[in-house]
């Protein structure tokens, strides 16, 4: 509890700091961007400006992602529930980064990421599948992730609309192969691993993500 209130204080200081610095700035272009605290330059190196994602280094879009889900996943990496499977080489790149952060720093990172303005215009759609076919496959997903991919915190299901589509494909593949959701202690990961049983073919994954791509992002 003490830790949390301390980190909250730090978060407030940062937010104030951003406002003080960014509001008086004259240039429009400069105001387009959020100042990144030194500790989180690492995040933007891979995940891109304003955490818009960067497929070239396999770093998904975090801009617009729910804070609670970011926290869950940082903890999953830290606890070894993600990024320790021998076949998950990309997850392994993130894992030591999260493992090096304290609980408090994870809270700060979440505060940083969720304070960024959502920049829907930087969402890219790269997956080409049969969205119509994907719609029927999505019926299973919608129970938790919502009919419009809006997510449901009560079920620990993140929003899918607006996530990097190539990342969704890769994660579904990992769940299917067991490279994610492999740890019995990772309850949500195991649920998701079981749910991907409906995707029996590679093209199923492409199709369902093509359907997710049709959702509006606010």
């Amino acid at each position: 509890m003490g830790l949390q209130s301390h980190s909250f204080g730090r978060r407030v200081r940062w937010l104030t700091c951003w406002m003080l610095i960014s509001i008086p700035a004259a240039s429009l272009a400069e105001n387009d961007y959020s100042l990144v605290p030194d500790a989180f330059v690492y995040c933007t190196t891979c995940h891109g400006v304003e955490l818009k994602g960067n497929v070239s280094v396999d770093a998904p879009r975090l801009n617009g992602m729910e804070g609670w889900y970011l926290r869950n996943q940082m903890l999953a990496f830290k606890n070894g529930h993600r990024g320790t499977h021998p076949e998950d080489l990309i997850g392994m790149e993130m894992q030591p980064q999260a493992a090096a952060l304290s609980q408090e720093q994870i809270e700060d990172a979440v505060a940083f990421a969720t304070a960024l303005p959502v920049r829907a215009h930087t969402i890219e759609r790269t997956v080409s599948g049969d969205a119509a076919r994907g719609e029927s496959l999505y019926a299973t997903c919608s129970a938790c992730h919502g009919a419009e991919g809006e997510g449901n915190k009560l079920l620990n299901a993140p929003a899918l609309a607006g996530q990097s589509d190539w990342y969704l494909v890769r994660q579904l593949d990992k769940y299917r192969s067991g490279a994610r959701g492999y740890d019995p202690a990772d309850t949500f990961g195991q649920q998701m691993k079981a749910a991907t049983a409906v995707l029996t073919k590679d093209e199923d994954v492409q199709d369902v993500v093509a359907y997710i791509n049709t959702f509006e992002v606010n």
Binding site: D32, T44, C46, G48, V49, K52, G53, N54, V55, S56
Partner: peptide, 9 residues
């Protein structure tokens, strides 16, 4: 590096 450049606006 070209792979980081694509993460820049």
């Amino acid at each position: 590096p070209k792979h980081l450049l694509v993460g820049i606006d």
